[in-house]
Nucleic acid binder design. Structure first.
Lengths: 198, 198
DNA sequence: GTCTATAGCGGGATAGAC
DNA sequence: GTCTATCCCGCTATAGAC
């Protein structure tokens, strides 16, 4: 136990990102110091700079990896068929992907202000890609005549805000199972874009 | 012009809160220094401590005042009648109140982590009060048989997340008038809690 | 009520030994 | 690859002059 020096690059690298994610989610990027992150990992502050050129890159990597994983997983979900089915697929995908990652969701949502301008634009582009996937489903549904949506871009943002808001209060092990909230949110989404009598 | 000393307590006080709100909304509480706030107001950093005992109190006051104004304005709206009408009133009230105050909404939403434990509980209580107002409308609608809602507490949070999300992208003077988005969001809210054929 | 000056601390990042 | 030590900077908050 407790050897104080040596090579650990294969395990320390991921641990740095894990620690940074947890601490930043809890306290915020600007409030977390490199010394705190190092303590969480179990190294001295200077050692962190073997894994990141600076603190800003740490934040950017957390957000970039998260967004790339979302987009990659969404592509793997390979939503097909009529728009209603694709919308259900998107809704359930969003919840299943995001609920187990509350820290990453929180950081990606709350820390946009703390990205450098260049990094902000990169993340913004990835976010827009994700939004567009939903917007296209809504447009398809309108074209099919199964959705009644006034403005697909506005509705896209409204639905994503609703779905992402779930990640801000839901915690695994609470009163509600993931299946249950998934069903409830799908019900809300489905109805909100449906034709419905006044 | 440019007198460097003198008494200005009647105008400096509000200017401190205004400057703090604007800067914190833009950069985040932890990233904004008392020196920045002082510069925005046009005084030296030390002078701020005539108006606040410390930085934490500044944040707390911003959030407390915002929440008290929301609750007071909601009470003034005096929503009455059948649940559908009250829900429409709440939805339009929420949008009309929040859209002109994007900075206050942003700070009250994003900076909860930076409140001391005691201050957090105080703000949390005010937030819960606001949530409860919506939850009671939903319960009334279910009792009247006009709303179909699985879980009123979950639906409350979902709807507030959707409505508040609007404040995070809408800007006055943009392409959409407030009346238009208000109508769109009311449509989404109304449908999401309505009876609707599978 | 505001100023200047500063105490006291903690921050990000780097240098060089091991 | 990690350590210790440190540079240099900016932070909150306070003290005392005006």
């Amino acid at each position: 136990m407790a050897r104080k020096q040596g090579s650990h690059s294969d395990i320390t690298g991921p641990k740095v990102l894990d620690a940074a994610l947890r601490l930043i989610a809890q306290h915020g990027y600007a409030a977390v110091s490199m010394r705190q992150i190092a303590a969480e990992v179990g190294v001295q502050a200077g050692a962190l700079y073997n894994y990141t050129p600076d603190k800003q890159s740490l934040l950017f990597d957390l957000m970039r990896v998260h967004m790339e994983e979302v987009l990659s997983a969404l592509a793997d979900a390979d939503l097909q068929g009529p728009a209603l089915q694709r919308l259900e697929g998107f809704t359930r995908f969003h919840i299943r992907f995001h609920l187990p990652r509350p820290d990453a969701v929180f950081v990606s949502y709350m820390e946009l202000r703390n990205l450098s301008e260049e990094n902000f634009h990169a993340i913004e582009g990835l976010r827009r890609e994700y939004e567009t996937a939903l917007a296209e489903i809504l447009q398809a549904g309108v074209a099919e005549g199964v959705f009644v949506v006034d403005d697909t871009r506005v509705t896209t943002r409204a639905l994503i805000a609703m779905l992402t808001g779930l990640s801000h209060w839901y915690r695994e092990g609470g009163l509600l199972a993931m299946d249950e909230v998934e069903a409830m949110y799908w019900d809300l989404v489905r109805k909100s874009v449906s034709a419905i009598p006044e």
